[in-house]
Amino acid sequence: MSPNMRIRGGKVIAIDNLYTVILGLAFCVVLATAAFVAFKCYIQYETIFNIP
């Protein structure tokens, strides 16, 4: 058993860092999506924010 695991009321519960990782994963996903969208915009329109 990991030392980060906590037992509350006889149940094994996840430590808080796990949610931090999950939240970081979500942030990474959102960031990758934004980067992909920006890349596609740059490739197709040669600009990211302006309207050609």
Partner: peptide, 15 residues
């Protein structure tokens, strides 16, 4: 925690 999980799932889905 529930909100974090839901946010993560929805983020992954929307992304």
């Amino acid at each position: 925690k529930i909100l974090i999980v839901l946010l993560t799932i929805s983020s992954i889905f929307l992304c």
